[in-house]
Structures are given as C-alpha cells and as structure tokens.
Simulated assay, not measured.
Amino acid sequence: MPDVKVPAPTARATPHLDVLPAGTVLHRVHSAAYPATSFNPNPSDSHYEGGRFCSYQGDGSHLPYLYAGFSERTAVMETLVRGIPFDERGWRRIRRASVRGRVLSRIATTCDIPLVGLMTLDQLAAVHQDEWLIHSTPDAYPHTRRWAAWIRGQAPEALGLRWPSKRDLGGSACILYEHDAATSLVKPVDPAPVALDTAEGAALLNRLLAPARTRIDLPRRQGS
C-alpha cells in the first residue's frame, strides 16, 4: 500500500524539496551510442515497458529524462543487477550480453537542482505515498509513472526526484527531467566513460560488486 489511484487534480500535496548543489557528481550506465549527458527524449508506454519514474505517453507533460546514481555501485546495481538470483555457491553472475555496448560514466550538475525528496517515510507521506512508490516491482511501474507525473505537478519548480536505492541499500538514485533543452543540467567530468564490455570494464564491475557477491566473467580473448 498504497497502490491506489492518483489523487484528483484538486488534491494538494506538500512535496519536500532537496537542492542538489551545482558540481554534484552522479554516475550512470548507458548505451555507448549516446553521450553521458544525453536525456531520453522518448516517452515510455502508458502501460508497458519503461522505468519507475519515466515520463510516459499520454500524461500531457512529457519531459526528456535521465536516471543516475549517487555512486558508481548504485548506478551499476540499479541497472545491471535486477532480478539476478544467487547460485548454489551464493554468488550472482551478470550476463555478458547485458553489458554489450554499455558504458559507466560520470557527470556533474551545472547548477543547483531542486528535487522532490522521497527518501524518508515523512517525505513519502508528504506526497500521499509510502514505501510502495519506491520499492514496488516492475509490474507496478505503469502506476508509479503516473504518480511521478502527479508529484511533478504538485512541485512544478522541481527538476527531478530522489529516492533510496532498492538494490544498493544505503545508496540513492535520482531522475532528472529536462525542462528546457537550451539549458543543460549536467556536464561530463573525468575520468572518461569505461566500456563495460571490455576487460577493464569487467575488472571495475568485479571490484565494485564483490562485497555484494556479484561478478561478471572476463570477455573472451579474440581468437580463443
């Protein structure tokens, strides 16, 4: 609970706003075909596919969006370690196909960015919600996307949402919405993106995820 219908337009909430300071470093896993700072311009379907808080078709307020983690590990856990079971030896193994053509990048905010905080029970209650909003499974994402649109309508000054990571306990993630394409909210920062389908990428993933008993095999050498 509460997996309930979004409140009526006349309902009012009191979202808690947190300011993400300029220069905050964020991390994201994304396709190497796109820059680290690119926002997804495509709305998700109203009923199928898409993430927890994506803009969706038909909400009347679609905005390009970008997901990121506040640490490398959070970004990786949220993107690559979804629903992977532990084997009989107590390890989870990431399939190499899931990292093909993907990179881990660092970006930084270019300005102070107000976000709706969904980090605590009180902050969730302020938008008429509870832990369901941030912990529900993907089958509920069509509903959580509608709630995200309603929350944005209650805090038009906010440029995104922040919530505790479901898969990296103690970490947090955010989504940014690009309100004005002429004003970039983020910029790339060093070091350069790491290609996750390389030996270097596998070594990085294994270093980050070893404490969580999660690993990926090294890529095969060409010709072997």
Score class of each variant (00 low, 15 high):
residue 117 G to T: 12
residue 127 V to A: 05
residue 53 F to I: 04
residue 222 Q to Y: 07
residue 214 T to P: 05
residue 85 P to D: 13
residue 167 R to I: 03
residue 178 E to R: 14
residue 159 L to C: 10
residue 114 P to V: 04
residue 86 F to N: 05
residue 157 E to N: 11
residue 78 E to Y: 05
residue 195 A to Q: 11
residue 36 A to K: 03
residue 154 Q to R: 11
residue 1 M to Q: 07
residue 42 N to G: 07
residue 207 R to W: 00
residue 14 T to H: 15
residue 131 E to I: 03
residue 202 A to N: 07
residue 88 E to K: 14
residue 41 P to N: 11
residue 109 T to A: 11
residue 93 R to S: 11
residue 159 L to T: 14
residue 36 A to N: 07
residue 10 T to V: 09
residue 218 L to K: 02
residue 119 M to D: 14
residue 89 R to V: 00
residue 117 G to N: 08
residue 16 H to L: 08
residue 104 L to A: 04
residue 125 A to F: 00
residue 143 H to D: 12
residue 188 P to R: 05
residue 18 D to L: 05
residue 167 R to C: 01
residue 32 A to S: 14
residue 171 G to C: 08
residue 75 A to G: 10
residue 52 R to L: 02
residue 195 A to Y: 01
residue 163 W to Q: 02
residue 192 A to W: 00
residue 208 L to M: 00
residue 105 S to I: 05
residue 31 S to N: 15
residue 63 L to T: 12
residue 74 T to W: 04
residue 224 S to D: 15
residue 198 T to Y: 00
residue 78 E to T: 14
residue 80 L to A: 10
residue 120 T to W: 00
residue 1 M to S: 14
residue 107 I to E: 08
residue 34 Y to D: 01
residue 33 A to G: 09
residue 129 Q to I: 08
residue 214 T to H: 06
residue 31 S to Y: 03
residue 103 V to S: 10
residue 101 G to Y: 05
residue 219 P to Y: 08
residue 180 D to Q: 14
residue 147 W to K: 10
residue 178 E to F: 02
residue 9 P to H: 04
residue 91 W to Q: 15
residue 5 K to P: 03
residue 218 L to E: 12
residue 177 Y to F: 15
